[in-house]
């Protein structure tokens, strides 16, 4: 085993666990303890997904969901950033509002559904509203804490180098807070994805979440399991292979991690 690097061993163990679970699943499905409509075999899940893919329904569902995700994520991040900036600049506002922000942060996105449906009725806007309500608050508090926790020696150095109030904010506080902001965006993305799925379960249209509900209504368990896997995989891949990478890049550039 020593010939493999630590990294390679980690991947091998993961692959083994994954393979083991697949085999277990296949075995349980083949024993017939549960009927096919409760526990389909891995093969039939794959077959259903391939079929949906070939019909084009899966692709269009994914595209619709991603479009909503991008709109909701962008709006939530921008709004959260702006509000967070205001709170960082005016500590009186921060003291007054931050407890409410924290409370709003702990509300699960599903809870916003009835409210969004009543305000915006079934439709695109209700789903976007759920994303906003689910993802904005976290961005607010990361932005505020990022801006407030800038190393005071940077501020001192900048002030003796003649920085004005505006450039103290623009040229020192903002760039110094970038690592925090990237982490904020990463969380905002994860929250947006969850909120979107919650919103799509009830809302209209034909996103991934709605396809999941359609699978339930049709009694198509293969489709349900396939979509759930897809939702998990999308979240995992975008977080691990996109946002983590960006975050590491920024951290290295900002000197928080070695070469």
């Amino acid at each position: 085993m020593t010939v493999f690097s630590l990294q390679a061993r980690k991947h091998m163990i993961r692959a083994a666990v994954f393979g083991g679970l697949l085999i277990l699943w296949q075995y349980l499905a083949s024993t017939g303890i549960w009927p096919e409509y409760l526990l389909p075999s891995p093969g039939s899940v794959v077959a259903t997904m391939v079929e949906q893919f070939q019909q084009g329904t899966l692709i269009s569902a994914i595209m619709i969901s991603i479009r909503r995700l991008l709109i909701g994520f962008t709006l939530a991040s921008v709004l959260g950033f702006l509000l967070g900036m205001v709170l960082a600049l005016f500590s009186a506002a921060d003291e007054a509002i931050s407890p409410f922000i924290l409370a709003l942060q702990s509300v699960p996105s599903v809870v916003w559904l009835p409210l969004a449906l009543l305000w915006f009725s079934l439709g695109e806007r209700a789903i976007i509203a759920v994303i906003l309500l689910g993802a904005t608050w976290n961005m607010v508090s990361t932005t505020t804490s990022g801006l407030k926790n800038v190393d005071p020696t940077y501020l001192k150095a900048a002030r003796t180098l003649g920085a004005s109030r505006i450039s103290l904010f623009r040229r020192v506080m903002l760039p110094a807070a970038v690592p925090h902001l990237i982490t904020g965006l990463r969380f905002s993305w994860a929250f947006s994805w969850r909120a979107l799925m919650a919103g799509e379960l009830i809302g209209s249209g034909s996103g991934l979440g709605q396809m999941l509900m359609w699978g339930r209504d049709m009694g198509n368990m293969s489709l349900v399991i396939g979509i759930i896997t897809l939702i998990g995989a999308f979240g995992f891949i975008s977080d691990n292979y996109i946002f983590k990478k960006i975050e590491n890049l920024v951290l290295r550039r900002w000197g928080y991690q070695g070469e």
Partner: peptide, 20 residues
Amino acid sequence: TGPGQKRVLIMQDAALFPWL
């Protein structure tokens, strides 16, 4: 009354801006 470029302060921690 405040800091100024006439009087520059050098600190123990070089305090260079890491993003520049």
